[in-house]
Every structure is written in structure tokens, then in C-alpha cells.
Simulated scan of single mutants.
Amino acid sequence: MEKIKYGLMGCSRKQTNVGDYVQAIAAKQYLPTVDVYRDREELNTYKGEDIKMIMNGWYMHNADNWPPSKSIDPLFVSMHINSSVYDGMTRPESINYFKQHQPIGCRDKATANLLQKHGVDAYFSGCLTLTLGKTYIRKEENVTDEILFIDPLFHYFTLGEMFKTPQKLLSRLKRRRFFEFKLREKIFKTQFSKNFLKKAKFVTQIIPETTVENNFQIADEYLQRLCNAKFVVTSRIHCALPCLAMGTPVIFLNGGFEGFGDRFNSRFEGLIDFFNRIDISKEGKITRNFNLHEKIDFKNFPKNKETHKEYAANLIRSCEGFINEK
């Protein structure tokens, strides 16, 4: 019997968000082997042996590169269609392709709604990173004292960021968002204790220019660090989602995204309901969706919600069933 080949989809840009590799690792944990690694922008040009591939992740920069090669047997779960390519990804050729491989599991409700409007059997599956607890297992004896603030409110530029990069300064002046650096300071001051902030380590999810292989190693080390952290505060969904999967206490700071429009924010639909959140409105109003009234501190940190667990279990069943098919 001919051995089944497996492909792993990812992003091969050298300088990128580590979240791209986190999503690839989420798929990789189900594969017996990785026989082919393929950039998501080059799925249409693949001409090798037939491969099975879990097709989770963010799609895409150029819709002309869609649909994928017929040599790829896909499982569509946790798929996000970026708003910039809605038209290209819903061309008749694309819709016919989706219908051949439906149902399509979508990372967010906006993607599911988009495909449903075009007659595709699509549903909200949640993100495959919700299953990373299969590989990264949190053990109490390994938990460190680290309090990680990972790109908190990264769209509220600091004064230093704006004056260091003229484009950022001009962008904020044009959008009348220059004084948001004060809102950022207000949020930290009113929501977290001084000692908590003093102990926190501020980390970014943007990784340096290096090789794809090294980026996978960086992502693996990043996930291990999240798994063992004491607490995490972030505005990155591919930090918060793995934390939920691993059981690491996490708070999502939901602010600064409103300037990008409803289509940008649509990528959060469904996912954001899984998090303990501090929400910041366009007007600067600060609210919480959890019942703690004092400042966040070492002994006053909310317990993670558990609404994601059903979605994670369904994703595990789907991926394992797909890989075990003969």
C-alpha cells in the first residue's frame, strides 16, 4: 500500500508575526510526518505527489493564487478569509472549489457568514490553536514567575514609537489618534497594580528576519514560555488562544482596532467571546467582561472562561479523523 504523504501549510516570509508559525504548529501536531512544507501563497503551484493538508490559518495576500492545486487533499478548519480579498476568494471558481470540499470550518463567524452567503456549507469552528494543549501541557511544577505583557494595546503607539517612525506619527495625526498614548497609560494605571506592572515583562510577537526553520524554533520556544507563564496580558489573538488551550491565565486587552474598520474587526467575531477582556471603546471608555472590581494583581486575576473547550474537542476530532482516513 502506498504511503500517504502529508503537507504543512504556513508562511515563508522572513520577517513576520510569530502567530503565523503558531498556527502552523497547531496543524503540525496532528501530522505523522511533514513531507512537504508549502507557503499559503503558493498552494496553487504545487505539482508534487498527492498530499493531505490541514488548511487552517489566514488567507491571503493575493487571491489570484487561489484555489489550491488538485494534488492537495484539504481539510478546511479554522480558515480566516482576510477582508481585503473577499471579492477574489468568492469568484465562481473559488466558490466551486469550496463546495467540493465543504463543510468549511471557519476561524471566525465573519468568514462563515461570507461563505454561507455564497451557498457554501460553512460553520464557525474556532481556531486550531485552541488545541495546542495537546502538545504544550501545563504542569504546576514548571510554572514560572513570569508575568508577560505581549504586545498589549499595540495599536496605541507610544510617543517614542511615533517620533521614531514618521509614518506612524503622520498616520496618527491624520486619524486624530495622536493622544491615544495617554489612553494607553491610563489603562495600565487604572487596571493593573503598580507591583504587577513592575514585575511584568513586555514582549513582542513580531520576530526578526531569519530562516523559516528558525522561525519554527522561535515559535516553539514562545509557546513553551506561554505554557509556563504565571499570567499573560495581550492584544494578540494568537497569544490569547494558545493560553486558553494550555490553561495559562490570560486577559485580552481589546482596544485600538476601531480605526481599521468593521471588516478588520470581523476577524475577531466569535473568538473574542472566549476571552476575559478589558474592552476600550473608541471614546476611551474602559469596561471588563469579568467580575473583578479591584485592580488586576497577583492575587486578583480572573479564571479563564471555558466556552472554548467544546470547539477545541470538535477540532481535535476533525483533524484526527482526517489524518486517520485511509
Rank of each mutant, 00 (worst) to 15 (best):
L169D: 11
H293V: 09
N62F: 13
R317S: 09
F178Q: 07
K117C: 03
E325N: 13
N44T: 12
I81N: 00
F301I: 07
G247C: 01
M89W: 04
M162P: 04
T90Q: 06
I272V: 12
P152H: 06
K174N: 13
T16P: 00
F322N: 03
Y311P: 02
F216E: 04
K139H: 15
L75V: 07
R138L: 06
L170Y: 11
D121E: 10
M162L: 11
P152M: 12
T16H: 13
Q217R: 15
V18H: 05
L183K: 13
R138K: 09
M9K: 10
I4N: 07
K99Q: 08
Y97W: 15
G261A: 08
F231L: 12
D262K: 13
E221S: 13
K303E: 15
L31D: 07
T158N: 02
I51V: 15
I25M: 03
K47F: 09
L292Y: 13
F202N: 07
I147Y: 05
K285G: 10
I251A: 01
Y311V: 09
G48M: 06
C106I: 03
K28C: 12
R225N: 14
I206Y: 14
T210P: 06
V85A: 07
N17W: 05
N62R: 15
L132T: 14
I147K: 10
